[in-house]
Design a protein around this nucleic acid. Structure first.
Lengths: 158, 158
DNA sequence: ATTGATGCAAATTATTTGCAGGCTG
DNA sequence: CAGCCTGCAAATAATTTGCATCAAT
């Protein structure tokens, strides 16, 4: 998950500190805990999942604070809000990572990340053709992972 | 947006009728109204927007019925549920249309649809490389449309 | 008549927010 | 010590659901 470390966006903490400073935000115990937990757990967490992890450390943190903190992380670009099929917003770490997309198994829920420059290039071309300037994008491929393809050809447990 | 019309999925009504029959569903006045309205209005409607259109014809249709009907349309593949940034699920007509993706202007909300076979091909390749069989996908490019690029270089009316 | 469909309101779920007191800079 | 933060509970917003009643087959 990390090879070279020359010009990577310094450090999450640094980016965050700068953002907070510029916006007159304060560094608190619960924010640190939430942020640390978020980045160490990784994956695509829903606020509730993250809240549960956080409560293992400090049972008194309220879910409202987790919501507020994740909104901040999202605004300063350290986390991306995603919205796969289920009703909740999920966040994933973003700083220092190249953009990537997702392959989602509709049977077992596995999420595989990937990136493909050729697709990105084509996306830009398409956008340009329509007069758009693209600032971000999201692409999700839904289907069956290798496991689920062989195991359940007859999946159907509504 | 439509050239040939030889093998296109017969007709929305036919697909729907078959689906309803196979599931023991009934054809009712409100379902017909909702479905007709949905397909004639077109675009990417939220349930509430659709409900408003429907109520112009029959003020007594409840929003619950619209929710239930759109869920059905989605299940039988005649409508696709989309989830752009705002909090609501939006539906778009699907029968007989080729798959397509979206370009979304983050300033004025314009949504442009497009399709690109080369990207689709690459997506399949990527999926295959990861052992996945893709059944569907969604791709959204966010940015500024031509209009918004020139008009507001300094957009910011939170 | 049967059985699924509808309307309504109450129930859920996800997320936001007002407020009083607490903690950070 | 001023102003941002936090917890808590109430408020929203989107969607679902129980139930008595109604309509389609």
């Amino acid at each position: 998950m990390q090879g070279h470390d020359h010009e990577e966006i310094k450090d999450k903490d640094e980016v965050l500190a700068r953002y907070m400073a510029q916006h007159g935000l304060k560094s608190t115990r619960q924010r640190s805990l939430i942020i640390d937990t978020f980045f160490s757990v990784g994956g695509h967490l829903s606020v509730e999942e993250l809240w549960n992890k956080v409560r293992e450390q400090d049972a008194k943190v309220s879910v409202a604070t987790v919501y507020r903190t994740m909104k901040l992380l999202n605004e300063c670009g350290l986390a991306h809000a995603r919205n796969f099929g289920d009703g909740q917003t999920r966040y994933e770490a973003a700083a220092g990572r190249d953009h990537h997309d997702h392959l989602i198994c509709t049977r077992c829920g596995t999420i595989v990340e990937f990136e493909n420059d050729r697709i990105e290039t084509l996306q830009d071309a398409v956008a340009r053709k329509h007069g758009f300037t693209v600032t971000s994008h999201k692409m999700e491929l839904y289907g069956l992972c290798r496991e689920c393809q062989r195991s359940g050809a007859r999946a159907s447990e509504a």
